[in-house]
């Protein structure tokens, strides 16, 4: 099905992806039964992730069962929104539609979930790209993309060391 409002785009090709960029398409989540509680909470400006009622372990992104104990009962537990950056990239190629300036993608390990496999992917805002570092303390804020979609995003906390403010950041964990 094609019409003038939505031209046929083959998203499997590089050309199709470039077309999406030109059309100004901004990727947004399509909540499903498994993921809707996360996005609904974000709409209320709350951060909630799955927690197993049997072993109390957190996990993210959501899964049908607990990846630690196999438990089938998972609750959507509120978390503080504070965490540390586990890893990050500075994307300067900007191939993904909706992204037209260099940006940071980070994976954030929430303070409540010491297991480093629990990571929330987000952009880091509120500082220079070059300020970002591994183990940087960050906190959530909420980006209302439209009436239906809110994306949790992260920014440095007051404790973060910003090079752009002349502060010396910690070196790598050896």
């Amino acid at each position: 099905m094609t019409n003038e409002a939505s031209p046929a785009v083959n998203i499997q090709t590089r050309e199709g992806q470039e077309q999406l960029k030109k059309m100004g398409v901004k990727p947004i989540p399509a909540p499903d039964d498994l993921t809707r509680p996360y996005w609904d909470a974000a709409k209320r400006h709350e951060l909630r992730i799955q927690r197993c009622t049997a072993c109390s372990e957190y996990q993210h992104p959501p899964q049908a069962t607990c990846e630690q104990c196999g438990g089938a009962t998972l609750e959507w537990a509120p978390i503080s929104g504070r965490g540390v950056i586990y890893t990050y990239i500075i994307d300067r190629r900007m191939m993904t539609p909706g992204f037209n300036e260099p940006y940071v993608v980070a994976q954030i390990n929430p303070v409540e979930a010491p297991r480093t496999t629990v990571r929330i992917t987000a952009n880091i805002r509120g500082c220079e790209l070059e300020d970002v570092y591994i183990d940087m303390p960050v906190e959530v804020f909420f980006e209302d993309v439209n009436a239906e979609v809110t994306l949790p995003q992260f920014r440095p906390t007051a404790e973060a060391k910003l090079q752009s403010r002349g502060e010396v950041r910690p070196g790598p964990a050896m």
């Binding site: 939505s6 031209p7 785009v9 998203i11 499997q12 090709t13 590089r14 199709g16 992806q17 077309q19 999406l20 059309m23 398409v25 901004k26 990727p27 947004i28 989540p29 399509a30 909540p31 499903d32 993921t35 992104p61 994307d91 900007m94 993904t96 539609p97 909706g98 992204f99 940006y103 993608v105 929330i120 992917t121 987000a122 952009n123 994306l151």
Partner: peptide
Amino acid sequence: TPQIDPATGQVTGRPQFEVPYGL
């Protein structure tokens, strides 16, 4: 390539936690 619905911008499955952030 990221699987983005050209009409709505929607991304399904696990990539819904990544592609909206440019990953």
